[in-house]
Design a protein around this nucleic acid. Structure first.
Lengths: 258, 258
DNA sequence: GCCGTACACCGTACAATGTACAACGTAAAT
DNA sequence: ATTTACGTTGTACATTGTACGGTGTACGGC
């Protein structure tokens, strides 16, 4: 195990798990299973949401569902597959309202907002979810289908729709990852931005040639002061989303926006 | 240790390390140090570049520089700080040509290309480098200053320049992260895209309702076939970069591009 | 010249992780 | 009643970051 990467292991076994094992012969030989796969996944999700991805250990999940550590392996082939299931489950539970008569721009804003909300509720997703080659479960498929539909009336080619959606989601994921670990660095060091700046200022003053970095000093402090750190994330969001939509508008041709 | 997060520990100590310890009294009491901090960092960089971030263990670094595992801690407070040093060193070594008379669009393309090249040469950077609150070392500062200068004649406000740069870099990082772990998933499973698809097709055919996901099937296979997987990354790059620049152009006002 | 002290270095040890392995028990199939 | 397949579990191992204490070295003050 090298990393928290998703999507390793025997693929067909993983797929069967993701889709709920439809080949399940209802009667088996041995003793009855004491829990279910969704219970295991839910336990892992609870741990990740409440205490972060690092708290998702096989032993912790096992204890949460009330079995021994090794029993988890009878439900799930290993930790990477468990992560796949967690991701797909999160995707599956997103609410998906039909698009109705909204223009493409409002649709894409809705896609972005929904993904931002998802990643705010499950920050660990930014550390785990791969944009490319995700686990092909029902959640991923439903999400993909629904978000593709947001591009229905844009007139883009199929390849461009795929690329455009990936681009939009890439922005959201990148933003949320930054916002998330900015929030975490102020949280789990128990050190406010002001304190951190104060602690470093002494060293910086001794070592730092302000004349060598005029723009960095000017713009960095301007950006730093203007943004109360909590507000900063919101500003970056509005800025980035507007840029992203304008960039796509240049490709689509803005007929009926607003 | 929870994660490969950068930037923990006593901040002033880290800063002094980053800036090469200018308070260094040249003569000390005990025996001479057998190696130097840059040697330690270079060893770690070599490991990361050649065998991935997971190969950067304190023991491996120690062996590479020829000391015992615990001796590394006399050069570096801990692993997070070592990662900070690695990141800052990579940034510091980027080539920075003065911008001359290029228009803003070409400048931003150059910024994006340079960062893409950086992240291609050091893929582990996408797993470690935080866009927000990076280690304030000389490399980070020089890079920041140089890239801010690319916005010099755009007429943007200071806050917008900062946001615009972050937006551009966010795209590059997001793209390279996807490209990198797409490449890795075809590499380290020893399974080509074709094999992977073949292995999954049987299960998917049994479980998958093609009528439920018309767009996903159509667009997904269109995008999949059109892209020979190696070509896909390049296409996504060109697409995304064009969108990003168009998005910024909508803010800047395109006077003299090309 | 001598010695105390500060510091570099190192071996050992510990807690946490994913998971391989084998023993044990249970319930359906024969 | 015996076989057989499978769920459950305890133990064990390799790997990680790093805390701790011991050992030796070289400089500063006498």
């Amino acid at each position: 195990m090298t990393e928290n990467s998703t999507g390793s292991g025997e693929p067909s076994r993983t797929l069967a798990l993701l889709w709920g094992e439809p080949t399940e012969a209802p009667r088996r030989k041995g003793p009855a299973r004491s829990v279910t796969v969704p219970q295991v996944v839910d336990a892992a999700l609870l741990l990740a949401d409440e205490q972060g991805l690092a708290a998702v250990t096989m032993r912790a999940v096992a204890e949460k569902v009330g079995v021994s550590a090794m029993s988890v392996y009878t439900y799930v082939p290993g930790k990477p597959e468990l992560l796949d299931l967690m991701v797909d489950t999160c995707y599956f539970r997103m609410t998906r309202k039909p698009w109705g008569r909204l223009g493409w721009r409002k649709r894409l804003v809705a896609v972005a907002d929904a993904n931002r909300e998802l990643l705010s509720g499950h920050p660990w997703l930014t550390e785990v979810a791969a944009l490319s080659r995700p686990p092909l479960g029902p959640g991923v498929m439903a999400k993909y289908e629904h978000e593709l539909a947001a591009f229905d009336d844009t007139g883009l080619s199929e390849v461009d729709i795929d690329a455009g959606l990936a681009y939009l989601l890439g922005f959201v994921q990148s933003h949320c990852r930054s916002a998330h670990d900015a929030a975490r660095s102020t949280t789990d060091t128990a050190m406010s931005d002001a304190e951190w700046w104060g602690a470093n200022q002494a060293v910086l003053a001794r070592v730092f040639d302000a004349e060598a970095y005029p723009r960095a000093v000017r713009i960095g402090s301007a950006a730093g002061e203007a943004q109360g750190s909590a507000w900063a994330a919101d500003h970056a969001w509005k800025f980035g989303l507007a840029r992203t939509l304008d960039g796509l508008a240049a490709l689509i041709g803005d007929d009926a926006s607003a």
